[in-house]
């Protein structure tokens, strides 16, 4: 028995490691690194392919119109005159309108959920927010047509009679238009923005709240001066994500915005966004120039989103440095 154990022992005694052995140990790591790097590269590749393909396919339109495409205000497919400024305007304004409505609400809901609500109510509201996030865009659009459009139509005459001196509130009561699109977008980006903002506030450590209260602040002062500033970058990230969604949202917008590529100062006039216009006119794009124009619009939307994202990143950096945060 003992001799057997001894031979066993001597057999399993490890030999001094050779260079090959050392290298073999790292094969798994190298493989893993390779696979993850490949996954990361595929993101880059997809973006590059997207941009290149779009650029190639829109080349005809770019060559034909040049910069006048971006600043032109006439959209007339029949005479092949294409100016994208009205849809750029429509895209940016409807999205900003959505932010204007949704940011204060999502901030309010998040503050209520993290700082005030009891556990029971918090659970219920969080569940409802998730439900809202999963409603398909086309359903929001239907709701917009049957509820929101008549509502805006019936409210508009009052707004016009009170604030009609402002160009913002002039125009006939269509119900379909910029404001309706903004409201629908606001409702649609509310869930994602709220849950991200809530996460951001939740990430503020309790010792910051205690520090503020111990220095004789009221609860509101604590929220305003200790909780919100602590994670500004998280809140801004939530807003940026909401903005990105609003810029690209297609279906619900096209159902309520009125689909007219015109620039108007009135909130009630019909307008058009890039995504909505592409969806509407793609099937009718008969000539190759027309098709190329629609693809250039897609490229333009990509550019606008990129620009706003970079801008927001810079804003976050500046704010976090100004806030004296060490990163």
């Amino acid at each position: 028995m003992t001799s057997h154990a001894a031979t066993e022992k001597s057999r399993s005694r490890p030999a001094p490691p050779s260079p090959q052995d050392i290298r073999r140990k790292h094969v798994g790591d190298a493989l893993f690194r390779g696979i993850t790097a490949l996954a990361a590269a595929s993101v880059l590749a997809l973006a590059a392919i997207y941009v290149v393909q779009m650029a190639l396919n829109s080349w005809e339109a770019v060559r034909h119109f040049g910069w006048s495409f971006v600043v032109g205000t006439t959209w007339d497919p029949v005479f092949e005159e294409f100016g994208a400024l009205p849809v750029i305007w429509g895209t940016v304004i409807s999205s900003l309108l959505a932010l204007l409505i949704a940011v204060p609400i999502s901030l309010g809901v998040s503050i209520y959920l993290t700082e005030i609500a009891g556990r029971r109510i918090r659970r219920i509201i969080e569940f409802l927010i998730e439900i809202l996030a999963s409603i398909p865009s086309v359903v929001y659009g239907l709701w917009g047509i049957f509820v929101l459009v008549p509502l805006v139509r019936s409210i508009q005459p009052h707004l016009t009679s009170w604030f009609g001196f402002l160009p913002l509130f002039q125009g006939p009561p269509f119900g379909y238009g910029m404001l309706t699109a903004g409201i629908i977008l606001a409702i649609m980006i509310l869930p994602i923005m709220t849950s991200l903002t809530r996460e951001a506030l939740h990430a503020v450590p309790n010792h910051q709240r205690e520090a503020s209260l111990a220095l004789a602040s009221t609860r509101w002062e604590m929220i305003r001066h200790a909780v919100l500033p602590y994670n500004k970058s998280g809140i801004i990230a939530a807003i940026v994500l909401g903005l990105g969604r609003a810029l690209g949202e297609t279906m619900a917008v096209t159902m309520v915005i009125g689909n007219q590529p015109t620039i108007s100062t009135s909130l009630f006039m019909p307008a058009q966004t890039i995504a909505s216009l592409i969806a509407n006119e793609f099937a009718e794009a008969s000539s190759s120039l027309y098709l190329s124009v629609l693809i250039e619009l897609g490229l333009l939307l990509f550019g606008i989103t990129l620009l706003l994202n970079v801008g927001a990143r810079l804003l976050v950096n500046r704010i976090s440095h100004a806030g004296g945060r060490r990163r």
Partner: peptide, 29 residues
């Protein structure tokens, strides 16, 4: 809490400047 100050177990300064930390309570007043 203005009359009864408190210092906590782990230092918990605000992510603000040194000056703003010291005057935080005064500003709230």
């Amino acid at each position: 809490r203005r009359r009864v100050g408190m210092v906590f177990q782990t230092p918990n300064p605000f992510p603000k400047s040194i000056f703003e930390n010291v005057v935080f309570g005064l500003r709230r007043q």
